[in-house]
Nucleic acid binder design. Structure first.
Lengths: 343, 343
DNA sequence: CCTGATCGTGTAATCGTTTACACGGTCCTG
DNA sequence: CAGGACCGTGTAAACGATTACACGATCAGG
């Protein structure tokens, strides 16, 4: 593959002049510039980003480690990160942790060795030694979606407290009192926060938190199904099941269908975290929608600030309730409704 | 960030010895090795992959340019590619072309500059000058999912001819005769092949190909909805609509629901390309499932062969029909059925 | 005791860029 | 016309790793 040296020889100039033309970093005479550009086109020269990065100590690349690439939430997040990063002249290298701390660390290590200029991390479970080390060394890091308590790192996340409150109000308004929640793992900040928001919302409506209505899941479909089976087998089963994420909602739906029950006739279903096809299920599923696009974009901007040494504020965005039909028909009134998951 | 030089100084050895320990490329005395390892741990040394790549002329990285990151087909494909590549010691850098040739070329160019060791490309539409150039220069390239005619490049793809034949046989067996197809763009090999498979299957069952039943789409949901609107507005609308991919099937379903029609009572629906949540729709959608995991893995292996200079055979995998309930209930018999999209 | 093999180690070149510095020429100014 | 400012250009030194080559020490065989 052709190098600057080859281009310089072909154009009859020095490598410095070639570099100057390519980066237009300094004035070059018109004829020299023309000869260089001709040589570049002729040789099909493509600058070697590896060599450039070595010299400039910058890769114009950021790393993004997501929880699970098969989860549409993270896919959409990756898309948004990518768009914003490209606009800022950065490439994004994605690592899929598959919700496993060891795999998360594998990617973090790889990305550090590749000398990404910054790193967006959706941490999987606990603080690993590698992550702690990175934080202590002051690596340009921003947590995305999830946070790790006890580490002073900028983060971009969604606060669903108000939306969950709206959801419980909606359910309460429909006459439901026995509300169950399938929580995410307590090892994840998102798992803890959603559970806390739900129990707080119950309390705000004067509802008792029945321990048997809090079923533990792990954000994967299978756990949602198992939890739902347990809930529906109770002597007094809940009227509505709220799933802590979109995958567990899917598992819950499977179990409900497998038992030949009707939604919302026999049991209502709602989910934290909306995905496009919730609107296409029958009945369409009521969900708490997170501003995923915005979250990704804001995270990139926060990371850009961090890399530039500018002060970084925490990014906290609000979720919103999207009422559909899976918890029962709302009485005619001013309730917000929506037919499709996509604006 | 610490470099070999720092490690060497701390360990009281030369950089060569440090390198030898880290790559165990040659014998090093036990005490020297121990001192080096201690220094590495002490300094938190992380080899600079940029410098290594420059020297060794290999990045242990492959590029993957996909059509659309929001399409679950490509997400699952990326996941499989990633898994296989990691197992072989490669990192994967993903580029999302968003079905736009200009963006595809942006990523191809970027990945070439980053000196990936090989490239998996799901080409978007026509042959661009950049792609032609790359092929002529003999870059280690493998086409994935889609191919470009007239270019002699190894590829990994799915042949759905037999599965589409099975689908038409299934529909025919249910008594349906008026079958419509919402095709993908004729600029994509997958668009052309699926349409050809459908018309051939019709002919094999003695069915006439009615031109008004071939509606052109672009693999995106909106076009599926528009095409379905046209089809349902015909004086003699089709009994079944077959969508050329999963997104257009979703659009079709929206339009059918918007018109207050029942599936499969008023009109049947089937899709080429299965996705997990098809099984969760009501009714569950009959679809042609592609062996996505296998496709991704085989593509990586083909690329690995190509990079190693070994001969590469074309990879062609068969799709299979997954009968669900969206085209009508099958008469009791030996027909294959399936409840869930995931094995 | 000499010779040659083997072993552990260090020195320095190299990969393809960018860029500090030097240098010669032209032009303007006083 | 002398002097400085400025412009275009080239030379060479980095960046951090790998590795060919050389070198001294140890050791075995004759």
């Amino acid at each position: 593959m052709a190098s600057v040296k080859d281009v310089a020889r072909a154009a009859g100039v020095s490598v410095a002049t070639v570099s100057r033309v390519l980066n237009d970093s300094a004035a070059v005479s018109a004829p020299a510039r023309a000869r260089v550009l001709a040589a570049v086109a002729d040789l099909g020269y493509r600058p070697n980003a590896v060599a450039r990065s070595l010299r400039t100590d910058a890769t114009r690349t950021i790393g993004l480690v997501i929880g699970d690439i098969l989860n549409p939430f993270f896919t959409e997040l990756a898309r948004a990160v990518e768009d914003e990063a490209r606009a800022a002249g950065y490439s994004v290298v994605i690592g899929n942790a598959d919700e496993r701390p060891d795999r998360q660390d594998h990617y973090v290590a790889t990305l550090l060795e590749q000398r990404v200029d910054g790193l967006l991390l959706c941490p999987t479970a606990e603080i690993t030694p590698l992550v702690r080390d990175m934080v202590e060394r002051g690596a340009p890091l921003v947590f995305l979606d999830r946070t790790l308590p006890g580490l002073d790192v900028p983060s971009a996340r969604v606060d669903g407290t108000a939306a969950v409150h709206d959801l419980v109000a909606h359910l309460h308004g429909l006459g439901h009192r026995r509300l169950a929640f399938v929580s995410g793992p307590a090892t994840l900040s998102t798992g803890r926060e959603r559970t806390a928001a739900f129990t707080a919302a119950l309390a705000a409506h004067g509802l008792r938190v029945r321990p048997e209505y809090l079923a533990a899941g792990d954000f994967q479909a299978a756990s949602g199904r198992a939890a739902t089976a347990r809930l529906l087998a109770l002597p007094e089963p809940p009227e509505v099941i709220v799933a802590g994420d979109n995958l567990m909602a899917l598992g819950a739906l499977d179990e409900i269908r497998a038992r030949g029950l009707a939604v919302p006739g026999d049991v209502g279903l709602a989910a934290y975290d909306d995905v496009p096809w919730f609107a296409h299920l029958s009945p369409p599923v009521t969900a708490v929608a997170q501003p995923v696009q915005d979250l990704g974009r804001r995270a990139v901007r926060a990371l850009a600030d961090r890399m530039a040494g500018r002060p970084v504020e925490q990014v906290v965005l609000a979720a919103r309730l999207v009422v559909r039909r899976s918890c029962g028909e709302a009485a005619p009134g001013p309730a917000r409704k929506e037919g499709s998951g996509r604006p």
